[in-house]
Design a protein around this nucleic acid. Structure first.
Length: 761
DNA sequence: AAAACGCCGGTTTTT
DNA sequence: CCGGCGTTTT
């Protein structure tokens, strides 16, 4: 059947060997998703395995969704009965059924990283410890590490005996778990660990799930941590049909607990396993692949592999060394424009990859000035915005009144005259009486809280009113009602600043998210909605529609591909980073090198390396050598190598540019923000919201729109600004600047290609 | 209780 | 340089 015909020999082998443990080492661009999806399809359609007996685990929602839709293309709706999801979503699914076995109630909530941080901070403060020695960051790291290594509070306590500092941290850890439980909450690590705990302590469940999952498949296996490894082993323990796919050369997440030895030890952990290497690359040109191989061969890897391709040789990767980071950005712009004109590439074909988010600044400045549309992945995220967190806190409190964290967040937001002192009283009373802070406030009179009595009563009345209606009205209605009754919206409106306006816009967007959810969900519920938000996040939906250059970190780029890639900041101290160099740890350096390998192999057709002689970062300027990773590629395999050693190389007015942007930054930014407002900024602002529902309306491909229809006097509709009338149209390059008088937002000038204007009949 | 000031720290990121 | 957070000021 054609399911197998499309596969090369190795891929075929990986697909049809369904029985027993199987490790697939899949090089970059070698078709690993294809193998996974075809294997699932093969199991169902050829081996007659029931979809609900198959478990497929990924790391991101994006990967899970992609896998789902690709399997669906192969075998249709049977995929809906499968267990496909992230580690976390699959465990939550199990926990929602079984968590009572470890004494939590089924409507537990999930604390995200920032909730976690807030809670830990409180605990450190209450314990009267020096927060220099016990910083929230280090304590959080220590606790998470313990959880990653599957040590519960008792085991951790035993382990650190004799180490004064960590003994204290053990106390904090216990207190932290206690508080979580009081809030009926679990954190991300608990999601995995509690699932394991339940399986360990309940033979009936271990045997139920173990027997249920006849086939287990795990994607990105090099990114698993110890807990995830144990979970997978348990779920596959009965049938032993486990397929894992990964690439040890792409392990770039050890800093968050990923343990590359999981993939290296697979044969030991799962005796009798079969190992298949996918080495044919379908993505990159030969020249790009050569460069990647040259870099990665400097690592000592256990699974030697050498990627090859039948693709054309292509152009040599280019290297360019600029004077400053602004010059570097100018070079990028010139190359983008050149390729656009000469080879008809579109903006969306380009990606700029950097080591640190802060590197995007200079590039953004120049892109704005040069009118290059762009979108940024990462950085500020939608759900991390204050106003979004606030409305979520309201909803959480309505859903679960024992959520003290949320109460703390919004009780005085907007200002209700319930300040620090009163709140800490409430907190003490809550601890003393072992009831939630909300209950205390509800009975303010009984506890002698006369000072805040009136405002507390108003607050409680409002929440109670919302609780009453929450199941009978739509979530979007609940949100609107909450924003009104709480006075939140009103206080924002009163502020009357641009910032407040943008907050209101974001809240509107949040409302849209809720409405989309209602339409999409089988049985919409507030709890499911909130859970979806916590478990969803960013990078998930880098849609290839729209038309802008993508800017992101190398980490975010994993799993993606672009026709043209710029790897910027190829400098000692930037990439590899200063910390890695000064640590002297060869393992860390190898991870940086893997990151470089990941970056190079994102490029399909053109690859540019850029670096700068001089760079201002965190306010001070440093002079950097060219990255060692560049030097690992033989000179004759790169174009422009001469430039990087020519110290006299001077580009046009680099000082001028630097000066201009340092001094006029704000002005420039404001000016260009509105020209790009519909393009760069809004995409970036709302990306996460889109990712959560991933069903948002597809934008028109801006490059194919008919610009001639915009004329003076024509009525148009803009997504954000509403309806307006065109005053005049001005030609600018290959685009038109349209001057519009909007009814609600006044006078704006927008670039026609990017504005997404619709003609109003 | 809320605004203003001043210091520190600062890869990478999913869920 | 820039944001977060704790402290001081009004």
């Amino acid at each position: 059947m054609n399911l197998l015909e499309e596969l090369n020999d190795k891929q075929y082998e990986a697909v049809v060997n369904t029985e027993g443990p199987c490790l697939i080492i899949a090089g970059a661009g070698s078709g690993k998703t294809k193998v996974l999806t075809h294997k699932i399809a093969y199991l169902i359609s050829e081996k007659n395995i029931k979809p609900w007996d198959i478990l497929a685990i990924t790391f991101t929602n994006k990967a899970a969704n992609e896998m789902k839709s690709r399997v669906q293309n192969l075998i249709g709706d049977a995929v809906l009965d499968m267990w496909i999801g992230t580690f976390h979503s699959i465990c939550v699914r199990i926990l929602r059924k079984q968590i009572e076995r470890i004494g939590f109630s089924k409507d537990f909530i999930i604390f995200d990283t920032s909730d976690q941080k807030t809670l830990i901070k409180n605990i450190i403060k209450n314990a009267n410890l020096d927060d220099k020695i016990y910083s929230d960051k280090s304590v959080m790291y220590e606790i998470s590490k313990a959880k990653n290594e599957m040590q519960d509070t008792d085991e951790y306590k035993k382990k650190v005996k004799g180490d004064f500092r960590r003994e204290k941290i053990a106390e904090l850890y216990s207190e932290y778990q206690k508080k979580l439980k009081e809030n009926n909450a679990i954190d991300f690590d608990d999601i995995i660990n509690f699932t394991i705990k339940i399986l360990k302590e309940n033979d009936d469940l271990l045997s139920y799930y173990g027997n249920k999952f006849k086939y287990v498949l795990v994607d990105e296996y090099q990114d698993t941590n110890k807990a995830q490894f144990i979970l997978v082993s348990m779920l596959a323990s009965v049938n032993k049909n486990i397929t894992v796919v990964g690439d040890n050369d792409q392990g770039i997440y050890s800093f968050r607990g990923a343990d590359i030895s999981n993939i290296l030890n697979f044969e030991k952990d799962f005796p009798g396993s079969r190992i298949i290497k996918l080495e044919q690359n379908y993505r990159c040109t030969q020249s790009i692949l050569d460069a990647a191989n040259e870099v990665i061969k400097n690592n000592e890897t256990k699974y030697e592999k050498k990627l090859w391709t039948k693709n054309d040789k292509g152009n040599k990767p280019q290297i360019f060394r600029a004077e400053t980071e602004y010059d570097e950005a100018n070079y990028i712009v010139s190359q983008i424009n050149l390729l656009k004109i000469q080879e008809y590439y579109k903006y969306k074909d380009f990606a700029i990859l950097y080591r640190m988010n802060s590197q995007s600044r200079a590039i953004e400045d120049i892109f704005r000035r040069e009118n290059i549309p762009y979108k940024i992945v990462g950085g500020l995220k939608f759900y991390e915005r204050k106003e979004i967190k606030d409305i979520i806190a309201y909803l959480r409190l309505i859903q679960n009144s024992s959520d003290n964290l949320s109460l703390n967040r919004i009780i005085n937001e907007p200002k209700r005259g319930i300040g620090k002192t009163s709140l800490s009283n409430v907190e003490d009373l809550s601890n003393k009486n072992s009831i939630s802070m909300y209950e205390i406030i509800k009975d303010a009179a009984k506890y002698g809280l006369n000072r805040i009595y009136t405002s507390a009563k108003d607050f409680v009345d409002m929440i109670e009113e919302l609780k009453k209606v929450k199941n009978s009205i739509k979530i979007s209605e609940l949100i609107t009602m909450t924003l009104e009754k709480s006075g939140y919206l009103e206080s924002l409106k009163k502020e009357n600043t641009i910032e407040a306006e943008s907050r209101i816009e974001n809240l509107d967007e949040f409302l849209t998210v809720a409405m989309e959810y209602e339409e999409q969900a089988a049985e919409p519920s507030l709890n499911e909605f909130l859970e979806g938000i916590t478990l969803s996040s960013d990078v998930d939906d880098l849609d290839d529609d729209g038309n802008s250059v993508t800017l992101m970190t190398l980490h975010s780029a994993k799993g993606l591909e672009f026709p043209i890639v710029f790897l910027v900041g190829m400098e000692e101290g930037i990439f590899p980073g200063y910390r890695t160099i000064s640590s002297g740890d060869p393992n860390e350096m190898e991870e940086e090198r893997r990151l470089c390998y990941v970056g190079i192999t994102r490029a399909k057709e053109y690859l540019f390396f850029t670096c700068s002689k001089r760079r201002t970062i965190f306010g001070s300027t440093s002079y950097n050598e060219v990255s060692r990773f560049i030097k690992e590629i033989p000179k004759d395999m790169l174009d422009g190598y001469d430039n990087i050693e020519n110290q006299d190389f001077i580009t046009k007015d680099s000082y001028d540019i630097e000066w201009t942007y340092k001094n006029n930054y704000t002005k420039e930014k404001e000016k260009s923000d509105f020209i790009h407002s519909d393009n760069s900024n809004s995409t970036f602002k709302f990306r996460s919201a889109e990712s959560f529902l991933k069903s948002l309306n597809v934008k028109k491909d801006a490059e194919d729109i008919d610009l001639s229809k915009y004329k003076a006097g024509v009525r148009v509709y803009h997504k954000k600004f509403g309806e307006g009338t065109i005053n005049y149209v001005e030609e600018e390059g290959d685009d038109f600047k349209v001057d519009i008088e909007f009814e609600k937002f006044g006078h704006k000038r927008l670039m026609a290609r990017f504005a997404g204007l619709e003609i109003v009949e």
